[in-house]
Design a protein around this nucleic acid. Structure first.
Length: 352
DNA sequence: CGACGGGACGC
DNA sequence: CGACGGGACGC
């Protein structure tokens, strides 16, 4: 993990806009990156409200290139209390939602000086690690993110992740985002064309393209309607053991025998989760169901007196197919020392 | 063994 | 040689 760079900020004052030197960063305002494309602002609010009272929440959408105002994949969440913001970072950073791993960190004060601070680096030796890359650029400023592109498609860490063992071969290309544009400029001046220690080839360091004005800007509307795209994500951390696993053929069995009935409520499918531990919090449900698809909301049912979980909760997912896969995968899953029972919600209530 | 919130449409 | 990401500062 990366320590929050509380020092290292040498204000060069090249900006033009507003004062607010970057000393005093907000302790309540977070930036959330790498959000799944389909996640709405309200779903983000729901997710972060599970930590504490949210003062404001904004998902950034593309309104310039027109289209259906696409999510730009990031947003801001401001809490009332600093301790909730800190807890959100601790519990939600790295959460897997659909095919993404979200990043939660403190937002920096907005200013012109932090824009356009992203660098594209090529010609890196293939054996250079992300840590090596950061070491190379560290002298020139505070690094916000770094990344080395690899061939295989596996989940990567954002910052010095330590044990990244997967065999993906480096493409010799990477990105470094600095805190300040002036830092990026200086890194270009100092590093472009230089030969890293132990290498023979000079590297290229330049500003990265702006992701907005490129060709993929017009996704065929149909892309959002193709139902199958989510099939390949099986829920990476879940390995239900043999006796609980459903065969793929059991799909019909489930849809026929456990008709969701009133599980569909408005715009989603409500799932009942039973046998949760008393200490269970909402983030556990997000972790469990997030990888399977769009989750709208989660709820842990608690005893009003003790505030302990009563052993069950609810999860509402947007898409039927994803809900079915989540149920098939998580029903019988052992969480802690408990075997979960997961199904569509039924009519039962203690009143009935 | 145990088991399906809760707040709340609009007229 | 080129290579462009998981659209990171309020779209």
């Amino acid at each position: 993990m990366m320590a929050n760079g509380m020092d290292t900020v040498v204000q060069q004052n090249g900006g033009s806009n507003l004062g607010q030197s970057s000393q005093e960063e907000s302790k309540t305002n977070l930036i959330v990156n790498y959000l799944p494309q389909t996640m709405t602002q309200e779903e983000i609010r729901s997710l972060f409200s599970s930590i504490g009272e949210v003062e404001s929440c904004k998902l950034i959408r593309d309104k310039v290139t027109g289209l259906n105002s696409q999510s730009l994949g990031y947003g801001f969440v401001n809490y009332h209390r600093p301790e909730d913001a800190e807890k959100a970072i601790n519990t939600l950073n790295g959460l897997r939602l659909q095919n993404k791993t979200i990043k939660v960190s403190y937002a920096r004060p907005s200013s012109e000086a932090i824009k356009g601070a992203n660098l594209y680096v090529s010609g890196l030796p293939k054996n250079m690690t992300q840590q090596d890359l950061e070491s190379l650029f560290n002298p020139y400023g505070r690094i916000i993110t770094s990344r080395i592109l690899c061939d295989n498609i596996t989940v990567r860490q954002f910052t010095t992740g330590g044990g990244d063992n997967l065999p993906g071969l480096s493409k010799g290309v990477g990105f470094i985002r600095f805190d300040q544009r002036v830092e990026a400029e200086r890194a270009i001046q100092e590093l472009n064309g230089t030969i890293p220690k132990g290498s023979t080839e000079p590297i290229t360091v330049k500003f990265a393209n702006n992701p907005s004005n490129n060709s993929k800007a017009i996704p065929p509307l149909a892309a959002y309607l193709t139902p199958q795209a989510t099939r390949r994500f099986g829920g990476p951390i879940h390995h239900p053991t043999g006796r609980f696993r459903y065969s793929p053929l059991a799909g019909d069995l489930l849809t026929n025998s456990m008709l969701p009935g009133n599980a569909m409520n408005g715009s989603g499918w409500c799932i009942f989760v039973y046998n949760l531990a008393p200490e269970t919090e909402e983030n556990v449900l997000w972790q469990l169901f997030g990888p399977f698809g769009a989750v709208q909301s989660v709820k842990v049912i608690r005893d009003l007196q003790t505030n302990k979980c009563k052993g069950f909760g609810f999860v509402t997912m947007t898409n039927y197919e994803e809900a079915v896969v989540a149920i098939q995968s998580l029903n019988g899953y052992t969480l802690g020392n408990r075997v979960l029972q997961v199904s569509f919600k039924t009519n039962k209530s203690k009143a009935a």
